[in-house]
């Protein structure tokens, strides 16, 4: 009996202490995460300039969402542009950073090579640096008389020097131009969300491609470390068993290593998709959405509408649509990986 009472007292203490221990953290998350999200959801149905007090805002129903998605006008076209630009950014950066990170992880993990620690550190270093500082370094590298143009013109004499960050032509448009297609064929005049099909199919602009190169350069190291952790978790016996069974190096890679790396691959793709749909700092520092709005992204639009155009309600609505887009893409990726497995 006494024992029982004592136990329940300790249990009671734990209950109180348990709550007291999580309370500060919970309050922090509640005040700076949960409450803000609920509040922003409410604001996304209102018109508010951020200059006047919040209670002077007016309810406007779904107008913010309607303006962005359905009603023709500059708001819709800009949002469509931002989705297009970011879509190309995701489709370019995610496969490239994943493939390169995996490749580097396999090479670094190779048993034959020494100096692993040095190379691992070198590859990872760009990932820990400030996004703004690295953006400026890239503005410098890709400036008209910068190192990239100098090296390119040394390798390919006669190629016209590009002002990378000021070049609005899309890569697909440029490629079509080389084979003689310079403007939209008639059937591509149809519009989706205020943008013609021809504009949707522009590809990333040269300026956006520069930002994409930067993104691949800064994120590859982190993902390489994740792949490396995954590779080192593969029990050596498995590889040896396959070797004894007479599997070639290629067979071992595709039949043993690759299937075992699926969880890491899944993680890297998910983090990649989530990260690339949020590109902001680099756009802010390098192009501010230009040239000709070809580096506008939903994240940058949130900032522009909310803080430069004082349309907080619209900015909040963009944030929620972006959230849905990210959920959709990670869901699609999950489905695709499952089907292949």
């Amino acid at each position: 009996m006494a024992l029982f009472r004592k136990r329940s007292r300790i249990h009671g203490h734990q209950s109180l202490a348990g709550w007291l221990f999580v309370l500060p953290a919970l309050a922090g998350l509640g005040v700076f995460l949960l409450a803000p999200i609920l509040m922003a959801f409410w604001v996304s149905f209102r018109e508010w300039s951020a200059l006047a007090p919040l209670d002077t805002s007016t309810p406007i129903g779904v107008k913010n969402y309607h303006d962005l998605l359905i009603r023709s006008g500059i708001v819709q076209t800009d949002f469509a542009r931002s989705l297009r630009n970011n879509l190309y950014y995701v489709l370019g950066v995610v496969p490239a950073q994943t493939a390169l990170a995996f490749f580097l992880a396999v090479v670094v993990n190779s048993k034959l090579l020494k100096g692993k620690a040095f190379f691992r550190t070198a590859f990872y270093f760009p990932s820990v640096t400030s996004s703004i500082a690295v953006a400026f370094i890239f503005v410098f590298l890709f400036s008209p008389s910068g190192v990239v143009n100098v090296l390119l013109s040394a390798l390919l004499p006669g190629v016209v020097e590009t002002v990378w960050l000021n070049e609005a032509d899309g890569l697909i448009h440029l490629a079509l131009g080389w084979v003689g297609v310079d403007s939209a064929p008639g059937w591509m005049g149809g519009k989706v969300m205020g943008l013609s099909l021809w504009d949707w199919l522009s590809g990333p602009s040269v300026a956006m491609s520069t930002v994409m190169i930067l993104a691949i350069w800064t994120t590859t190291g982190t993902f390489m470390l994740m792949f490396l952790a995954g590779l080192q978790n593969i029990p050596e016996e498995l590889d040896e068993a396959a070797l004894i069974d007479g599997a070639t190096g290629r067979q071992r890679f595709f039949k043993v290593t690759l299937p075992l790396m699926r969880p890491t691959l899944f993680l890297v793709l998910t983090l990649g998709i989530i990260g690339t749909w949020q590109v902001f700092d680099q756009i802010y520092a390098m192009t501010a959405g230009g040239p000709q709005k070809t580096t506008l992204t939903p994240s940058y639009l949130i900032y522009r509408e909310g803080f430069e155009n004082s349309a907080m309600g619209r900015a909040a609505a963009i944030a929620f649509i972006l959230f849905v887009v990210i959920l959709l893409f990670t869901g699609l990726q999950r489905l695709a990986l499952r089907r292949n497995g």
């Binding site: 995460l33 803000p36 509040m39 922003a40 604001v43 902001f280 949130i302 803080f307």
Partner: peptide, 9 residues
Amino acid sequence: IVLTIPRFL
């Protein structure tokens, strides 16, 4: 990024 506006509010 979704928290930009909410946090400001």
